[in-house]
Each structure stands twice: as structure tokens, then as C-alpha cells.
Design a protein around this nucleic acid. Sequence first.
DNA 1: TATGAAACTTAGCACTCTCTAA
DNA 2: TTAGAGAGTGCTAAGTTTCATA
Length: 586
Amino acid sequence: MINTDHAKKEVFQKNFFNDFLKVLKETGKPAVDKKTKEPIEIKEFAKCDFTNMFNYFEKQREIKKSLSNAEKKRIKAERDEAEAKYKVCILDGRKETVGNFRIEPPGLFRGRGDHPKTGKLKTRVTPEMVTINIGKESPVPAPPPGHKWKEVRHDNTVVWLAMWRENISGSTKYVMLAQNSSIRGLSDFKKFEKARELQYHIEKIRKDYQAELKDTLMLNRQRATATYLIDKLALRAGGEKGEDEADTVGCCSLRYEHVTLKPPNIVVFDFLGKDSVPYHNEQEVDPQVFKNLRIFKKAPKGPGDQIFDRLDPSILNKHLQNYMPGLTAKCFRTYNASHTMQQQMDLIPNEGTVNEKLVKYNAANRAVAILCNHQKAIGKTHEATVGKIDDRITEMRWKKSRLKRMILVLEPKLKNKKKDFFSDINELTADEQYDIIAKVIARDKEKLQKKFERDLAKQKEEKVPVAERVTKKDLNEKIKELTALEKQYRKEVRIKPEVKASMTVEKLMAQVEKLELQIKNTILQKQDKEDNSTVALGTSKLNYIDPRLTVMFSKKFDVPIDKLFSKVMREKFKWAIESADENWRF
DNA sequence: TATGAAACTTAGCACTCTCTAA
DNA sequence: TTAGAGAGTGCTAAGTTTCATA
């Protein structure tokens, strides 16, 4: 991990170093001075050199990567076969797939955000730490030779198959059934049905909290305000967190510094949510909510103090249960996400190609993801990718105006006849043209160079007749040609472009048209990329949008379901695919 | 009623696989 | 044909809610 961003953090290094020293001590092999043979104390992480270890593992990776495809396939097949029997279990006589059948291996803990325990050693789990949960009559799987399980129990009121305690925070980890199992499907179905049921209560709930925003009892007023935020902004409940966890918040745990008031009624939210994902939102709120937040922030409260000091998720949830059995804060997120998706889908016209409909579906999906603040890290290559697209657009524009100038060479009169058509002929400045010409030529030269190197390598391996061999001379000639072309292009920025004898105005017009379409598409593509660069669509699709909505969309708009759900999702949402038709509504 | 553990859902990261555009 | 991007998936961290206990 030494080359990762994690390992650059001070806390990571400190935690790692502590645990590292402990392990050295426990293994009973203290470091020894090479000359004096005296044991030495290792005091400073910065003076430890791990590059040999790092290089070793890098090498292993390289070796693995360089195997032939057939070899890789063979290894994978062997592995799959060995694992097959651990991937299934029998539940009530039916075969079901197990999800995470592998015990988590030891490693360095990588917390998200500023986690105080990041870098600590996550220790190896032995069978002696593992509890097995299995049917009374079933044969207990044998522990690895020389070991025994911590415990074997027969609890049919829970869904886990095995369990152990992890050493970083002391929490419990479970082996459970896969997403496509009957148990998971059923609880998924129940979750969405519960969210659907909220429709019949939401009006009353909203009416009540609207009234309670002015309640004289502070607790009720806080409860109403928090419910408003959870309902309106799809905030999470926000449970209490410990000192030894990352400092993240949800609704109930919002603090003074997370909420800024901009009169008359704009509230700026700025905090780290689950997984330390930044939540930033400037939101116009109900005037009474604004007033309440001002009251909840009133002195002596200051930075570090809770806004909802009388409230926590259990109080909030208990109140919600009065409206509907089983209703919790979380349910609002599901409800609002699916409700938003339904609304968005109602706006989609049934027209266009499958691809166009898919774009509309994704736009609806994106609206939900934005509501839930589902983000992803901006890709490391994003900027470069967008830069390349920009270059491509500029290149096409340059080509287009060049074509138009060629048309004028053939038929100068057109310039006055078709003013609109030629209005963009000078949209690129001379400098911009020189710039893009240089880039295009440099790119093509690089391509040639690469192809040449590939061919050369190939020639070394196989016997190629002398006459067919590529030589450095060929390459240089081609590069020369490009250089000449560049000169020609640069010249044409100032003077009329050359037009081949075979060219006609019609042919050139057709080319312009083609380019214009390409430019339009590329601009759209770029916009789409920008819009999606920080929004993760998967999480809402997997957890918040009732899958029956997607099935309905598929049937109503005639879009194959495998364009909307991946294989794993189709298995997970089998229950939805089988039950919803084109008229289904959330 | 408070507290912490247990149980289960939600989440982003990082890898692998697959497809696409040059 | 092939690199590179995007989709798909595995992994496990990080939440919420429920349950048990004092």
C-alpha cells in the first residue's frame, strides 16, 4: 500500500508503525545491528525502507499479468472449481448461493475519510474465532485440520451462516446469503412495500410536522424540523458516533458549524455524511424551518454543539411508528427516491431509439442519485479525458471550416447566397488553428512511432520476408510526409486551401454535414461525462429505486431489461421482473 | 430509559472484464 | 487490431434499526 494515498496520511503511518512494531516484538525477532549484532530499537517510520518488499509484490503482479490468456483461464477455472462447494448452501431444502463465503483476510485497515484507526493491522481470523450457524440436523462443516470452531449454534431467527468479531472496532462480521437468495429478495420486497405504504401516511405526517414546527415544546419542534429535513432533503437519520470513528454526521447529529443561515430563508448545509462524502446544499426552506434553525443555533450554542440537542434517531423513529408500524427515518429516503423516479418516468415520452430512451432513464436515475447525494471520486484520468474530447471537438471544427473554405474555392458565389452556412467559417482564430494542427500532427506521429515499435517487436518474433519488413527508413519517410502536411495546413490558415480535382461541392457539403453531426454528438457526450463525473448512479439503482419501476419502464418503453439491469441485478431483482407489468406504479 | 451489542442495509473504492472507437 | 474507457462486480467499511440487559 506504500504507493497509495492512504499510506501518505500521517495517521495511517503512525497506526501502521505501532502495530508493525508490536508484530515484530511478538514474532520474537528483534532487529539487529549488522555490525555489532546488538538488538536495535526501531524508532522512526520514515527511516524504514520497505521498497524491497514493495518491489517483490509488484513483480508478482507483473508475472501474473504476463501469463497467457489460456493460462489465466486455466487458473481461474481451477480456482472456481475449488471454491464451488463453498458458494452454496441448503436453506429449507433449496439450494441458495452464499454471498461473502470468504473470511476477510488480514491487512491494513483503510478507513474512509479521516478515520482515527486507519493503517492499523486487521488481524487474521482463525477458526477459533468463528461461530457457525447451521440447521440442527445438518452436518457441521469441518474446520481446517488442527482447528475447531468457536461455537456451533442453530438459530433460525437470524439470516447469517457464520460470524466473527473484527479487531479494529470490535464489530461483528457475518457470512450471509447472496443478493439473489430468497431471503434477501423477500426483505428487499418488504422494504419497498413499506416505502410504498408511506404514500398513504405521508400527507398526515407532513401536515403534522408542519404544525409542530411551531410547537411550544422544544423537543417536538426539533422533531418536526428534523423530519422536515429528512423528508425534503433525504438526509440520513444521523446516529451518534464515537471518538474513534471518522467525524461524519446525519440529520440528528448535525452540529452548529454544519448549517449556515442566509436570510430570509436559505440554509446552507455543509458537512461530511456517510463514508465522509461531502454534502453541500444551498436550500430554500419553509420560513418556519429557517426560524427554528436560528433558534436551535442560538447562544450559548457554538461550534461543536448539536443543533438537535433534544433529539436522536430512536426518539424520532418511535414517533414515526405512531403513523405506520415499522416506519423509520430511513424509509423516507427509499420513499422519496422511488417517488422521484416515478415522477421522472412519467415525464418521459414513449419515442425514439432504445439508446435515446436509455439516456432518459439514466437522467431520471441521476435525479435520484443527486437527491441521495451519491457521489464517486472524480476519475484520475477525467481531466485528461475531457481535454482529449475538447481537442477532438476543436479538430472537427477546424476540419469543418477548412471544408467550407474549399467549397468557396470551387464556387465563390455561394458565400453570399448561403450566408448562414458560412457564418462560422472563422470561428477559430489563427492561433487556435495553429495549435490544433500541431496537436493533430503530433498525435499522428506518435501513432506511427508506436505502430512501428509494435511491428518491429513482431518481426523479431516471427520470420518476415526481407521485402516486407518495416525499417526505420519507412518510418522517417512517413514522418516527413506528416511534417510536410503540417506545413501545408499552416499555410492554408492564411491562404486558400488546396482542393483535389475529384472534389465536388456536393461531396464537400456531405462531409460538412457529417462533421456537424459528429460535433453535436461529441459535445453531448462531453456534457454527459461532466454531469456524471461525480454522480454515482449504481447505489440508488441497487438500494433505493423500486426495481419494479425499472421493469415497468422496460416493458412500457420496449427497452430490453438487460440494458437496464446487469446480470447480478437481474438475479437480485428476479422477484420484481416476474411481478411488474407495463402499468405498474410505485 | 439508557446503553451497547447484534443484525442487517447501504456505500464507495478498486479491481477485472468487456466493449468501443480510433 | 488494440488501447483505453466504461461497465460490472467483489470487497468490506459505515451506516440504521432492533434487541437485550441493567
